[in-house]
Design a protein around this nucleic acid. Sequence first.
DNA 1: TTGACGGCAGGACGACTGTCTTGTATAAAT
DNA 2: ATTTATACAAGACAGTCGTCCTGCCGTCAA
Lengths: 217, 217
Amino acid sequence: MKEASFPKVSDTTHQRREHILQAATQVIAQDGLSGFSVRTVAKKAGCSRGLVEHYFRNKASLLLASAEWADEQYLHRVNAAVAAKTGLSALEVRLRCLLPYDDITLDDWKVRVAFWHQGTTLTSLEGTSNRSFYTVYNAILKDLKDAQEQGEIAAKIPVRVTSEMLLLTVMGLCVSCLNNPQLRTRKPLDRRMTMFLNFLKSGNVADLEVGDPEVEY
Amino acid sequence: MKEASFPKVSDTTHQRREHILQAATQVIAQDGLSGFSVRTVAKKAGCSRGLVEHYFRNKASLLLASAEWADEQYLHRVNAAVAAKTGLSALEVRLRCLLPYDDITLDDWKVRVAFWHQGTTLTSLEGTSNRSFYTVYNAILKDLKDAQEQGEIAAKIPVRVTSEMLLLTVMGLCVSCLNNPQLRTRKPLDRRMTMFLNFLKSGNVADLEVGDPEVEY
DNA sequence: TTGACGGCAGGACGACTGTCTTGTATAAAT
DNA sequence: ATTTATACAAGACAGTCGTCCTGCCGTCAA
């Protein structure tokens, strides 16, 4: 076998690749897809165009790799945060990892929306967005099932549709935060977070309201 | 007063402007923002670059006008569909107008996502997206209040947070449809629609489930 | 009849794009 | 020691971009 004798991909090589991908997602978050070019990514990464082209066949594959990398990064973060938690407490940190409490998660959502948009044109990106949706969905579903087994929530709650609705709502909330600076501050987000959890525990819409709304529309 | 003697904006002038705006949103829906240029819009509208530049100072203002136009178009459609309805039935058609049942509403969401993305960079677009969100929110809120007065839903349902959650969920659902072709067909959308409505009427999560899910994740 | 002017078309230009290509330096394989 | 392959840099090029600019044509004012 020839492959076995080939030198393993060195650490620095892998690191440089990741470095470029990080730069790429930063460019997208800061300047959008219109500011995303091989040159700007190279500049952000502090290297030459040649290097970027060396690691990525062309612009499209750089974009695809960036989408996958951004997704992985989120999964790493959430897995570290959830740690050994299960049930409702796991669900809570999982959702909190999504909410744009800081600039990092806000940039995450900017990047996600960028890829959603790009996915409407470039079909190769469709799969990535879709896969990451179902990854989060399944994680939430498992949390809810655990919560049910542990008796944290009622047994008659339909976990599948509830998981989906929860995720969809959080998605809607996060993209709303993108163009509403008022919304993406600690208090409004926390209020909605406790709303969701109380709602799950009681299972009744009447218990949705938690305190006064912080903004009047 | 000099303005009074000026000839009114002729119908053809106004129509040509709208024609260009329609072409612009079509370009965005079909080819995305990366395919959106003065030249491509002109070609789609069947006129010259000069004409586009004549009606719109520059590319940015064309983009902004397109965002506002797309928003108006949706409002016209939904107002015509809602007509004299009130309460839950009004709410239902309002939400159904959002769901991507056909290519028109699907393109609508493509365009919306495009502007969300653009809004993360171009702050002049932020306001438009935000305003249109609260327009829909207020409409839903009114429907829910009416439904409450008419006794269609329980009096103790907190209408404000419920309206918000409903809208956020639908937003999340619609963007999910963008990169999940399975989801944007009649049956899955209808199932979720009746879920939402049943949920409002009963007010209990336990009643969320409606039939079997059409897709297993 | 002359002149002004708005609707409209398209040329010109400099900036930027993705990609192809050639270059050099370093390290591994023979 | 010499070949081979890889890591990396940057020049060249053809194309597209937004915008400015000039010009044509029709209409209305004087």
